[in-house]
Nucleic acid binder design. Structure first.
Length: 499
RNA sequence: GGCCCUAUCGUCUAGCCUGGUCUAGGACGCGUGCUUCUCAAGCACUAAACCCGGGUUCAAAUCCCGGUAGGGCCA
């Protein structure tokens, strides 16, 4: 490589270059994360470039969504798409004149040519090659057209594309993750790099932009591995330096196919909406294909920025295992300061119509979240776990009140006993309630001939009366938050159910 | 079909480069127990893997060769 070319890639610059044709994919998020971490670790720059040359499918709203979700994750970029830098603009739709210039250059140097073959002709050729047992590739028919012929066809408004001449040679390169990789470019066939001078295609724009933006390392998904020889050939034809490549292992479905919709959510925004925390998602994604080589498994983004190393990235694809994400998310939920967690839960409670402004004090709300949080895997779980605190009247089947083989009357007696004790209690706090109810339980069991140690006879009906659920926090925790008045009311309502 | 990539518990992985310390370690999940009115959380414990076949070597998860399987891309 020429000396000045090496100079150009001395500074570490990486990029994430999504197409705004849909929501940000979790796979894409992970690619962004790895690029970001690589940049941070090596004191380089991380660039966000929007690949929106496909105007048919690109939409501004997706660009906005990508930006929003990346911000949410805490992945910050140094340049693009609206943050200035000397290499902008960072939206490809605003760089069309640049591509045109290079396209013309290739055309003039006869490294690219106009191709007028129609879809049908190409399909026929393809079919024929397949029949002969050959790998289908463009046969180069239009590569030999004279300038006059080309001009005539263009004047006739004949449909055309621009093809790049692929040299018939072996392309070898070193991938940071995979080591030496070799492709036989002779098998490729001349590729289409633009529909016309103002409509360049993916392979071409990527190469041009990575060069102009002085990208030192191209870190992308493994699905791009077969594209690399094409890009290298393009770089050589344009006299560009060759960046260093690193192809990340894919994120997989449970059946080991490339992660796709239908087997679960793939849009990062879906996970966001369901109440996954960015900390959990980051931690989960980074461990899919990377590990520090120690037994540490919990990482914050800033720790990762220090500890990440691309050499430790795995070669094989990794199955997206939602149970692990759930575990991590539950972990981070439990770690959250209660004020923060409460704040995060509020939108879900409001959306469910449970939380009406002014109905509950902030400190009460925090107590509700506090006793629910060990059961939460996602923020949205708060609704299901705590709805009974917000409702006036609980709906549940009276059968639920029954502990083991108790009869209706015995359940009723248990509730009446609980009501009596709680109504006479001096101090409305958990400790006090526990002490009084536990001793009452022993008395109750003795009277009824129940096993002495089983507190369920007294406590289960009470807990159900207060929560309306077969699983919930303890009746004392609930009663403590509900307050005496509501607690007694709920017990009475349960008793009525049995009448 | 062609090219390329990959291969350790169900899953994510450590170990492989620099063979012996590997009766293969950790985590999630599963199971059991403790705690316990229930469900969680927490704690403790259990089960669970070197894709197959050759070779090299005193010794191979680790090195070499050949299969097999899975995946990606192109069409």
């Amino acid at each position: 490589m020429k000396k000045e070319k090496i100079e150009e890639i001395k500074k570490i610059r990486v990029r994430f270059a999504p197409s705004p044709t849909g929501p940000l994919h979790v796979g894409g998020s992970r690619t962004a994360l790895f690029n970001y971490l690589f940049a941070k670790k090596n004191k380089g720059k991380f660039i966000l470039r929007i690949e929106d040359t496909d105007i048919q499918r690109s939409e501004q709203k997706w660009t906005e969504e990508i930006i929003e979700e990346l911000k949410w994750l805490g992945i910050q970029w140094d340049e693009g798409p609206d943050i200035g830098g000397e290499f902008g603009p960072y939206k490809q739709s605003q760089r069309l004149d640049i591509y045109e210039k290079y396209l013309k250059q290739l055309l003039e140097e006869k490294k690219a040519y106009y191709c007028f073959c129609t879809e049908e002709e190409l399909e026929d050729k393809r079919q024929e090659q397949m029949d002969r047992g050959l790998a289908p590739k463009y046969d180069g028919t239009c590569a030999h057209l004279s300038d006059d012929e080309i001009q005539k066809k263009i004047n006739n408004k004949q449909q055309s594309v621009i093809r790049f001449k692929i040299e018939n040679k072996k392309i070898k390169f070193n991938d940071l993750i995979r080591g030496d990789v070799e492709f036989d470019a002779g098998l490729l066939g001349d590729i289409v790099i633009a529909k016309n001078l103002t409509t360049p295609l993916y392979h071409f724009v990527v190469v041009v932009d990575d060069y102009l933006m002085k990208i030192s390392h191209v870190i992308r998904g493994e699905e791009h591995l077969p594209n690399t020889p094409r890009h290298i050939l393009l770089q050589r034809a344009l006299d560009f330096y060759q960046p260093i490549y690193a192809h990340l292992p894919l994120m997989l479905n449970a059946d080991r196919s490339k992660l796709s919709k239908r087997q679960g959510d793939v849009a990062l925004s879906d996970y966001h909406k369901h109440g996954y925390l960015p900390e959990a998602i980051i931690n989960f994604m980074v461990l899919l294909g990377w590990n520090p080589g120690t037994e540490k498994e919990i990482f914050t983004l800033s720790q990762l920025a220090k500890e990440f190393s691309i050499e430790k990235v795995q070669k094989a694809g990794a199955v997206f295992n939602i149970q692990r994400l759930d575990f991590l998310n539950g972990f981070y939920i439990r770690e959250k300061p209660i004020e923060k967690l409460t704040e995060l839960c509020m939108p879900y409670l409001k959306e469910a119509g449970l939380l009406v402004i002014g109905q509950m004090t902030q400190s009460k709300l925090q107590e509700v979240v506090e006793i629910s949080k060990t059961r939460m895997k996602k923020l949205s779980d708060i609704v299901e776990l705590s709805d009974f605190f917000f409702k006036d009247k609980l709906q549940f089947d009276k059968e639920l009140l029954r502990w083991q083989k108790m009869g209706d009357n015995e359940v009723k007696e248990a509730l009446m006993m609980a009501e009596k004790i709680l109504s006479e209690i001096k101090k409305w706090d958990i400790k006090q309630m526990e002490t009084e109810m536990f001793s009452a339980s022993e008395k109750f069991n003795l009277e009824k001939g129940y096993p002495e140690k089983n507190k369920g006879y007294l406590l289960w009906p009470l807990r159900v009366a207060l929560s309306g659920k077969n699983m919930s926090p303890s009746p004392f925790e609930i009663a403590n938050i509900l307050g005496k008045e509501k607690t007694l009311k709920r017990i009475e309502n349960a008793i009525k159910l049995l009448a």
